[in-house]
């Protein structure tokens, strides 16, 4: 879904396509997940540890009567675990794509960002620590900031666009490899 939008040829005449992504924070980086894939965002929940699953699967949780696996996105992308002090402020983003439902543990969830399609570039190996296969593109968000002196500066943030289906479906492949 996300990739389909990016691959769309950009013709000059058509109006610029706009995407809405939810910004998930992981360390220094900001990941964007298509708003349609985000089911809800929860505060930390009790998680039951499950044996025989890939290391980044924290376990399963109860989402209103349904059992949902919870992934630690930090360990999925090889980042060090979050400081214990900050864990309370972490969030579980429940994502839903292609019939797969899972919870993603992230440091924080901030806002909904609007990205125009011409601000999205193909992923580069140099950017981001995440698994490159899970990144469909890099979006640039410019925001105007007023500094103390009153000068207006433009801040550019890079958003790594996360392919949820790829992020989730690689679990089964990985679990076979690890077993």
């Amino acid at each position: 879904m996300t990739s389909a939008l990016i691959e769309k040829p950009q013709s000059e005449n058509t109006a610029v396509l706009e995407r809405q992504v939810v910004a998930l924070h992981l360390g220094e980086e900001t990941y964007g997940v298509d708003i349609a894939s985000i089911h809800s965002v929860l505060t930390p929940q009790p998680i039951t540890v499950v044996p025989n699953v890939p290391h980044f699967v924290k376990g399963v949780m109860n989402l209103r009567g349904t059992i949902v696996p919870v992934l630690d996105l930090r360990s999925r992308f090889g980042l060090p675990p979050l400081d214990a002090a900050k864990q309370k402020s972490s969030r579980i983003a429940i994502v839903d794509a292609d019939g797969l439902t899972a919870g993603l543990i992230v440091d924080a969830v901030s806002e909904v960002l609007k990205l125009s399609s011409d601000s999205i570039e193909p992923p580069s190996a140099l950017l981001g620590s995440g698994d490159l296969r899970c990144i469909t593109g890099i979006g640039r968000v410019e925001s105007n900031k007023s500094s103390k002196s009153g000068d207006k500066t433009t801040e550019v943030r890079l958003i790594l666009l996360l392919d949820i289906v790829e992020t989730l479906s690689s679990i089964s492949a990985l679990s076979i490899r690890e077993a």
């Binding site: 499950v50 699967v57 019939g99 439902t101 089964s172």
Partner: peptide
């Protein structure tokens, strides 16, 4: 436990 985790041994 969902299709994502599939069959977990044991």
């Amino acid at each position: 436990m969902g299709t994502l985790l599939g069959d977990i041994p044991g």
